[in-house]
Write a protein that binds this DNA or RNA. Structure first.
Length: 216
DNA sequence: ACCCAGGTGGCCC
DNA sequence: GGGCCACATGGG
């Protein structure tokens, strides 16, 4: 299975090239983006982050200082904006209280401890926690999302649907390397966006020959 | 007009 | 402990 996962990786990489994830100017921007992108098109998240930058409030102190209604207006394009304003404030409150708003201090903490702390924050579930760990803090925590599930199942890699089973599957069968986890997840998203969609477009898919789906 | 997007928390049984 | 549901905007 190890060889198969690496083969899939190589084919995706050869097809799509490096994805340069996470697209952001700072680790804090990654964290904010991880919350704003929950069940939302990335293009909408970019608009929201653009608004925060234009207002010069894309930093922990400003997110805490500004009223919730102001945050809501800035992030409105990303959808679920009342929920997400609450989540952003909850996360930043945690970040300031536990780590002085310091990425460096947060990076110094242990992966398993950080993960538990993040999961205790309102609005941070397993995927958002792993995205923050991997893409903002460079911790080797594999990210599972809707694409990962769908692609893994269609390729016949696994049948289960549980977050941790899927996460463990990848982590157990890949070298534990931040760079690899980073690029692998990003490449799965690329495949999911263009080919392995809810209505799959298998004809041009780079993994066509490895997949069960197109045989129907 | 539909369907979908880089989920999560709350409630019900 | 699983199965629904609300949450909301914008693009194809």
């Amino acid at each position: 299975m190890r060889a198969k996962l690496l083969k899939i990786y190589n084919q995706l990489y050869n097809h799509f090239g490096p994805q340069h994830w996470w697209p952001a100017d700072s680790p804090f921007e990654v964290m904010v983006g991880a919350i704003l992108t929950q069940s939302t098109n990335w293009g909408n998240v970019e608009k929201a982050i653009g608004n925060l930058k234009k207002a010069k409030v894309l930093n922990p102190r400003k997110i805490i200082e500004n009223r919730k209604s102001k945050i809501e207006n800035w992030i409105k394009p990303s959808g679920y904006y009342r929920q997400k304003a609450k989540k952003l404030k909850a996360f930043v409150g945690f970040f300031l209280k536990n780590y002085d708003g310091s990425i460096k201090k947060m990076r110094a903490a242990q992966l398993s401890k950080l993960r538990e702390e993040l999961l205790a924050v309102h609005g941070i579930g397993p995927e958002t926690a792993d995205s923050i760990l991997l893409y903002a803090l460079d911790k080797p925590s594999f990210v599972v999302d809707a694409y990962t599930r769908r692609i893994g199942q269609r390729l016949g890699l696994f049948k289960f649907d549980d977050y941790y089973q899927i996460k463990d599957f990848f982590e157990a069968n890949l070298p534990k390397r931040v760079k690899l986890y980073n690029e692998y997840h990003a490449l799965l998203v690329a495949l999911g966006k263009y080919y392995c969609r809810p209505r799959p477009k298998c004809e041009m898919c780079p993994l066509k020959h490895l997949c069960q789906t197109q045989k129907n």
